[in-house]
């Protein structure tokens, strides 16, 4: 079915088309370059200083690698944060994302009331942080929370550092599943119905149809979901921040960056060093993704 004709080269575009194509790329590129990459480079450079963010740039003094040394040696929250980020990543990959995909597939079947189901699952994504903080406080509070009231227990869901990460992950999965469902649903709607029909005529069962036919053609969407999960897990921030500003068992790298950079603390250099470490970790993974993607092109 694939065409043998060569028609997809820029070379074969008219001059006007070439201008259009260039503009389509250049404008967004410039915006991202200017407002994301330029500051990112600035941030990397600042990570070698102890600047407090006040005064002219000329007053900045380099301290070499001291921030990085301090982070690895005398900054207690750093290693727990790395560990928590990895746990976060694992739970999102193994639980929340598959759950969201499953919901999308179920909702896609078009049973009566599908709009209601979609809305219910998506609602957590819409809510403001203030509300999400309150909602889970109602459930998890040690003295007044619903769980302890029903079970009669005294588990300190938010305060016990062995428990609170998992409590936060339940809340995070609750939101993440709705988000993934939405993205995946949009992908499922793009699948050619005739494929399913053909599979059904061949006598394939529902799950066979999905795994053998639908899932493979959804490959680009599957990649989206994987990458999104990855980004979200690495940048995970707001939920933990609204619970206790990322302390006492809920340390994540992004909260450490924020604690140091935002507010009066203003350890710009130190915070930038934390951010640079985060950037390095993500870059490695982006690089791996690009390698895989290139091989397949």
């Amino acid at each position: 079915m694939a065409s043998k004709r060569k028609y997809r080269g820029i070379d074969q575009l008219s001059t006007r088309d070439k201008v259009v194509v260039s503009l389509m790329v250049i404008v967004p590129t410039l915006i991202v370059l200017w407002l994301v990459w330029l500051p990112a480079i600035g941030s990397v450079l600042l990570s070698f200083t102890n600047w407090d963010g006040i005064g002219p740039l000329s007053g900045i003094k380099s301290v070499g690698l001291q921030n990085y040394r301090d982070i690895a040696t005398i900054y207690p929250p750093f290693w727990p944060a790395i560990q928590h980020n990895l746990i976060w990543l694992a739970v999102m990959f193994l639980v929340a994302t598959p759950l969201g995909m499953l919901f999308a597939v179920l909702v896609d079947r078009g049973v009566a009331g599908t709009r209601f189901y979609q809305t219910s699952i998506y609602l957590p994504v819409v809510l403001s942080l203030a509300l999400i903080g309150f909602i889970w406080q109602l459930i998890y509070s040690r003295d007044q929370g619903l769980i302890n009231a029903i079970t009669g227990g005294t588990t300190d869901w938010y305060g016990d550092p062995n428990v609170n990460l998992w409590a936060a992950l339940v809340a995070a999965s609750w939101r993440h599943a709705g988000y993934i469902m939405l993205l995946y649903l949009a992908g499922l709607k793009g699948v050619d119905p005739s494929l399913r029909e053909a599979a059904r005529i061949d006598g394939a069962s529902e799950s066979q149809t999905f795994f053998k036919v639908v899932f493979p053609v959804m490959r680009p969407i599957n990649i989206i979901v994987l990458v999104v999960t990855f980004i979200e897990s690495l940048r995970a921030f707001d939920l933990v921040w609204v619970i206790n500003k990322g302390r006492n068992g809920l340390e994540l790298i992004s909260t450490l960056v924020t604690q140091n950079v935002v507010g009066e603390a203003s350890r710009i250099g130190f915070g930038s060093a934390l951010a640079t470490i985060m950037l390095l970790i993500s870059s490695v993974l982006v690089f791996i993704y690009l390698r895989i993607a290139m091989k397949e092109e």
Binding site: V36, P39, A40, G42, S43, L46, G53, I231, L234, R235, F237, I253, S254, V257, T258, V261, V262, I268, G271, S272, L274, A275, T276, M278, L279, S282, S283, V286
Partner: peptide
């Protein structure tokens, strides 16, 4: 992939 807070200043 960058935390926006890092780009604040």
């Amino acid at each position: 992939l960058l935390p926006p807070q890092a780009l604040l200043i």
